Simulated scan of single mutants.
Amino acid sequence: MTLGGFYLEQLRTESARLGEVARMGLDAAVPSCPGWTVESVVRHVATVYLHKVEVLRLGALPDPWPPDFGGRDALELYDEARVAIVDALETAGTELETWTFSPDDRTSGFWYRRMALESVVHRIDVEQAHDVVTPIDPDLALDGIDELLFPNLGGPWWEEGDTEHPVDATVRITVEGRAWTVRADATGVAVSPGSEGDVAAEIFGSADAVFLWLWGRVDTAAIRSAGDADVVREFRARIAECTT
């Protein structure tokens, strides 16, 4: 299977599961997103999917955005959107030049990966709301760690020092034979593959546990860490600034 095929398969599977669990009740509160219900998640994901349909169609950010979806039934809108995003990605292929937020990847392939990972994070949200959490594909979780670290965390977002959590330390994440070394200060985050050099703290565990911890969907008890606990706490808070 090609990489694009893997992401499309995951997108189909994860988005179907999200819709299935959402039908257990839209009013359930989402523990990891205070103030959100399952309906909030469903509407959010539908809007994200439809936004990327337009990005792929235009090759640019749609403006104005979003349309007024407030009058639409949430599940009906979601079902239409999940079909539309798969169709749009299949039509685009993985090499179409388009807008992305990655400094290094301006192709539609970026959105294959991003939409699969968007779907799994929010699938977990609705499962947690109904206490029916199921496993994440280990390969998707491992890839999701890599994507969260770059471009989400390690992109050029910090040059103005716009953070309440400068960290000012080096952190290592080690998961299932892979490692990432992250140097963070107030004006930058540099992510390097591998485990070279000294670090103030190290985070490790299973791929799904570390992935969900990085995304704030499980607490620190789900992972293991060594070194400076304050650095681990500040590192997680820095990630929250660029993922919420």
Rank of each mutant, 00 (worst) to 15 (best):
S102H: 09
G155N: 03
R217A: 03
D219I: 10
G109P: 06
D168H: 03
L11C: 06
D198Q: 14
E176I: 03
L3E: 15
D68T: 07
A29H: 11
E196F: 00
T98P: 09
V126Q: 11
T243Q: 12
P151K: 13
T220N: 11
V53H: 09
G197M: 03
T134D: 06
G5W: 14
L75F: 10
W111R: 09
H130D: 08
E202I: 08
V167S: 04
T187A: 13
G227N: 08
F235T: 02
E54N: 10
T220S: 15
T13Q: 14
A81D: 02
V21P: 00
D73Y: 08
G155T: 05
G205R: 03
Y49K: 13
L142A: 12
W99C: 05
C33S: 07
F211H: 10
A207D: 06
P31V: 10
V218Q: 08
Y49I: 01
S225C: 10
E160W: 06
E241G: 08
E234Q: 15
W213V: 04
G154Y: 00
V182I: 14
G19T: 05
L26D: 08
L75E: 12
A200V: 00
A229G: 08
S40E: 04
G19N: 02
E80Q: 13
D104C: 02
G109I: 01
P151M: 12
L3C: 06
D87G: 10
Y78F: 15
I124S: 07
D87R: 10
E14N: 15
R106F: 11
N152K: 14
S206L: 09
T134H: 08
A222F: 01
D73C: 09
L149V: 02
D104R: 12
D73T: 07
P31K: 06
L212G: 03
L149S: 09
